[in-house]
């Protein structure tokens, strides 16, 4: 796979984002079920934190496959635009989320100057993604009104979810692609 923004790579990055979006969409029943279960005990936002990993997987995954600057953020935004036109419930705000989440993964690779795309960069990406998305929810979803205990709980849950889908899972997928000779 050549490392440039060729037509083929652009299509593939967009397709990878869509694949992740489709799989996420297939899990949306989990999100809804979780929300329903957690609503009576007032913990519905935790559904968001638990499932966030599945949301953000495209960025780290595409970044680790292509190893080029900009891929993580492009994949998230392209995926968000496609989902927006498919009539996803969050519509336009999806694009904002895509930018924010893509930025997290992108920063993880940027920290080491886009020289490496390994566990450390993915871990950093997970940390950035958790911090940025949590800040966004601080305003958007009213996290600012929660007590410290609940906030810490949500933060930890979110980090674990984001990390699993930022590091071990993309790395495992990447390894399978390499072993199958699909990518070099």
């Amino acid at each position: 796979m050549s490392k440039r923004w060729s037509l083929r790579n652009i299509i593939l990055i967009a397709l990878i984002a869509i694949v992740c979006g489709v799989i996420f969409w297939l899990t949306s029943f989990i999100y809804n079920a979780l929300t329903l279960i957690l609503t009576p005990i007032g913990l519905a936002p935790a559904a968001n934190d638990i499932s966030l990993g599945l949301w953000i997987v495209a960025g780290p995954l595409a970044g680790a496959i292509f190893k080029m600057p900009g891929v993580a953020i492009f994949s998230e935004v392209a995926g968000a635009v496609v989902e927006m036109f498919l009539g996803d419930q969050w519509g336009v705000m999806n694009v904002v989320s895509g930018l924010i989440q893509g930025a997290g993964a992108e920063l993880g690779f940027a920290v080491t100057g886009y020289k490496k795309y390994g566990h450390f960069q993915l871990l950093m990406g997970a940390i950035f993604t958790t911090l940025i998305t949590f800040t966004w929810d601080w305003f958007k979803n009213g996290y600012s009104s929660y007590g410290a205990g609940l906030l810490i709980f949500l933060f930890i849950v979110r980090f674990i979810s984001v990390w699993i889908f930022s590091d071990p899972i993309p790395m495992a997928i990447n390894k399978l692609l390499k072993r199958s000779r699909a990518i070099a």
């Binding site: 799989i23 297939l26 496959i65």
Partner: peptide
């Protein structure tokens, strides 16, 4: 499972073929 790396892997393999066909 929906979070199984193999599911993503197989779908991306298909995506690689499609990206080639489409371009």
């Amino acid at each position: 499972q929906l979070w199984s790396p193999k599911l993503y892997f197989k779908a991306i393999l298909a995506a690689i073929n499609w990206s080639s066909d489409l371009s």
